[in-house]
Design a binder for these strands. Sequence first.
DNA 1: TGAGCTTACTGGTCAGGCCAGTTATAGCGA
DNA 2: TCGCTATAACTGGCCTGACCAGTAAGCTCA
Lengths: 255, 255
Amino acid sequence: MSDGAQFRQVSPVRLYQRIVEQIEQAIARGDLKPGQRLPSERELVSQFGASRPTVREALRVLESNGLVRSRPGDPNGPEILPFSSAGLAKEMTRLVQFDNVSMAELISFRMILDGSASLLAARLRSEEELSAMEQTLAVMSDAIEVGYEEFSKADVAFHEAVAVASRNSLIEVCNQVVRGAVLSLISDKVSHAGNSTALMRESLHHHQEVLEAIRAGDGLAAARISRRTLYDYYAGYVPESEQGPLLALVEKEDT
Amino acid sequence: MSDGAQFRQVSPVRLYQRIVEQIEQAIARGDLKPGQRLPSERELVSQFGASRPTVREALRVLESNGLVRSRPGDPNGPEILPFSSAGLAKEMTRLVQFDNVSMAELISFRMILDGSASLLAARLRSEEELSAMEQTLAVMSDAIEVGYEEFSKADVAFHEAVAVASRNSLIEVCNQVVRGAVLSLISDKVSHAGNSTALMRESLHHHQEVLEAIRAGDGLAAARISRRTLYDYYAGYVPESEQGPLLALVEKEDT
DNA sequence: TGAGCTTACTGGTCAGGCCAGTTATAGCGA
DNA sequence: TCGCTATAACTGGCCTGACCAGTAAGCTCA
């Protein structure tokens, strides 16, 4: 290791990147708030001293990152969008698709997130949050008669309510994303195989147990049950050779 | 709810988006593997039947998402990059910056991830992985004399080794990202305040305890200790009024 | 055979232009 | 005066064509 000056690798910075940076920072600093408008492209051209194609490249990048939205003909210019987790979801979906993340890893991660959410919810939930969860379970119960589609929607709503009660938006977002990834991967199989009233009743029962533990403030139980619920529900989609990590999570406090 | 046809909101799809989609899908399908090259911009122009600015907008978006890289003058065309979690990290950093995710939430999330990683590592680790962890601790021990910079690097390496042993790349990546976010948020304070040999020794001791639990295969203890270690280390950066969720995680099995 | 130069490409950037769409506004009619 | 409508001035989407500074392959010459 030399003790002289440390040089970092340099990379040529494209003009459009400088523009992206400037606008990103303006948003990060709060100079530009959601709902506010950017100047028109032609105006930006003169402000940045770049050509229109260059400015447009910058806007397309910002747009694809969900920071702004341009509508043709809008005289007010591109709109600054409120933050959304869509970008995060997209990135995580890519992670799953490209980086060969296995089904087992996904479900394992979901068990961790959902279990933690239940634990935190049991210890932090307010009365309003509790009744919100109760309500989603009521919807779930009714939905059994309607069909799997509705049931699944209520299921998601319940987990969402738990995540909200955990008071941690990272858990909320990540759980949402991972849940989406899992569901999209098994959607073809489940839409037919899962349309069983008995299975739905069983699932509902599990969810009621989780809710009961949350109501009782028993975080450990809530976490354990919610992990096991997920395991029971999804283990069938995981090859036996990869079930080790899943079992490691359900056996957690079984001794 | 009508029982007729369901119409979804439509939004005009830009030309550049179609190009992005096609290339993204080609990569997702595996038709384009990392290291392979895309045709030159002018060649893409004729393949897609779009103009160069449009093709360039697509390439800029792909580039900003970390999927490809263009170098001026390269006769082989833009390169398909291997997957990297940089994009995920960027999105999560944005989540923290824009969506007012508090320090408490970040640390809480980190405790969950790191705790789960330790738990899984305790139950799944191989001998090689165990000795890899031991080695990082040895480096950490030596680094105390060198300085905080080195120590911190070895610290990260240890957590990384644990995450690898958890056999779950989602944990690995997310933990990495969240750790980066936490560190970048407190970097200014810690670089001076943390340069204490005593603190480093204490931190090292905690890490040794975690490793011991992992070696013993005691997942619950490993998780508990690693959560507590993080709490002790970072609680000072969290206002007291927001420490509830953190305490909810360390008191987990204290009764 | 090897070193150096040339050339044919690459991507980065710009200028200018056309088109379809949106909207504010001016003007019209009641 | 008020409400509606038609227009005009803008917007972004997209294209053509061009210039420049690089790169690297291939050619030439020693």
